[in-house]
Amino acid sequence: MSNLTIAGREFKSRLIVGTSRYPDPHTMLQSLEASGTDFVTVSIRRLNLKSADGQESIMNMIDRNKYWILPNTAGCFTAKEAVLTAQLAREALETNWVKLEVIGDDETLFPDVTELLKAAEQLLRDDFIVLPYCNDDPITCRKLADMGCAAVMPLGAPIGSGMGIRNPYNIQIIRDLIDIPVIVDAGVGTASDAALAMELGVDGILMNTAIAGAEHPVKMAEAMKLAIQAGRLAYKSGRIPKRLYANASSPVEGLINS
């Protein structure tokens, strides 16, 4: 099966995995291993200067020879905040890749499209490789692609909701409209959601909570790996059309009573 290529970089897996919300670091590392991923997301936050045992840098746990790092701008509500966060990430992690998130609302965590487009434009001008988290809106995705983003990452459902692919038809239209990689980011709850997304023809899936929040994260990571492989293979195999009535699979010629 062909590999996922973004901005000229080839990944061996079509699954991008978040590093947050695991019960403990050991489970996170085991889950990443079981998922088969080689591409993981991290966040940028203030260093805790008060206590020596503040939140440890994730980079002390992640082997950069094994995983490509995608810093996000999670928690940013304006283009200005997102651009500054991306620049801080570039300085701290020595990468110009960014998962651009500009959130419009605390409760839904839906993207703020106007701020997102503004931030994407600024970051592209500043030589970033921009992977924007966006709505499942084909027109926004097309604008982001035309601008020069390396991929578009429409949501399947709200972040952490586990609701699956709420609008598969839009994802399909996005797939048809856009020539750059389409990554479904957010919403996947279980393996069948991941398989469905892949069957729609998207290039990959980014997920975090579905694995980290599962009762058995390591097993779920493996389930997601298999679902994505199966979904991709099914997409490439060309499914049969759906029909309302039956179509006998056994031969109709030579029946004994004819």
Binding site: R21, M28, V42, R46, S57, A74, A92, L93
Partner: peptide, 10 residues
């Protein structure tokens, strides 16, 4: 002044 680093994220 802001001093930041990378932490776990999705």
């Amino acid at each position: 002044v802001e001093i930041v680093h990378a932490v776990q994220g999705g």
